[in-house]
Design a protein around this nucleic acid. Sequence first.
DNA 1: CTCAATAAGTGCAATGACTCAACTTTTGGG
DNA 2: CCCAAAAGTTGAGTCATTGCACTTATTGAG
Lengths: 197, 197
Amino acid sequence: MTESTGRRERKKAQTRQSLADAALELFLERGYDQVGVKDIADRADVSVTTLFKHFSGKEALVFDQEDDQEAGLVAAVRDRPPGRTIPQALREHLLLAQTRFAVQAADPRFGDFQRMVRDTPALSDYSHRMWMRHEAALAGAIAEAVGAPADDIGCAALARFALESRTLIQRHAEPRRAADEAFALLEHGWAAAHPDS
Amino acid sequence: MTESTGRRERKKAQTRQSLADAALELFLERGYDQVGVKDIADRADVSVTTLFKHFSGKEALVFDQEDDQEAGLVAAVRDRPPGRTIPQALREHLLLAQTRFAVQAADPRFGDFQRMVRDTPALSDYSHRMWMRHEAALAGAIAEAVGAPADDIGCAALARFALESRTLIQRHAEPRRAADEAFALLEHGWAAAHPDS
DNA sequence: CTCAATAAGTGCAATGACTCAACTTTTGGG
DNA sequence: CCCAAAAGTTGAGTCATTGCACTTATTGAG
């Protein structure tokens, strides 16, 4: 009874989806703080306890598909085209992630969603933490790319600063320009220590 | 009965102090998460409601003297000795703040305190937020120091990165070296855009 | 000195997120 | 068809935090 992709997992995924859907609907209707976990569980027709078996907390209901952000970051560093430095690759990757989101803006609800996340402190904090959780992995990828020890401080610093730039970029009206200015610091500083790549 | 500023304010300050003391004792005894807000109120011999009239939350009980960190940061930039760049000044200021703490290490409890803050997520998060709240003020001070517009993105980035370095430095065994490596990025990058100071 | 305004403190009930302990149902492999 | 484990349920409980109504003490003005 270890692993098998049966109907069971489908049902589980389905309840999970019901919960995420119910949560999103309610949040957009009334606002995040005006919705209790009980309301969500009720609409998805499950118990509150079940809800917490599927999601680690109220905020997690909103960020359902956070899977491969880490893989994306690591890949952006590892598979960067030759001649592109690591800070440049990260800047482009972050800007692209921003834009990829904007594509979904076809859905009119997506604007509301983004706005809700931005000005609900609980949600923007959670999102920020989610990204910063990838700091160690990103630092490792950078260190490996330049042949530095895995716990090199300079690599950790670049990783953290790059990830922090994300919110700096997001909250500005002119993302491209903001990214350029924020990463100018990092690109020049990095080039001084690592002339190649 | 006694003199000077009314007895009322003295009593208020006294209960506040009792609460902070009781909290610190209990936290160090049992660990932050094993102490309820009721326990603290009981030991200080006040009601829970009173506790929350003095402190905004459970975490705030631990960080009683957080007053003028912002002023210190701004001053470090504004009053830096001639010939010292802004990133250098910030690096030294952060290292100094670190060391100033270490002076209190005469108290053997201080080591425990620092350890507790470091590996209690609720507390390290709170502390981090406390510092990052000064980002805007620091960015403003930097912008003024170089004559840039108050909302200059590069200045905001430097402010954020410098503040973020703090935890990067704190968690490393060799603070001086960590600070040098983390700020190497910033100093070189900053010098490229602002050759003077 | 008195009195009314004010602020500190109290008790209690409530809310809202989250957990725990038992118990029932569903399901899929053998 | 059986059975152990996963999924789900219920209900009670914890814990931080807030609101409300109330008492008590301090103080400043008259």
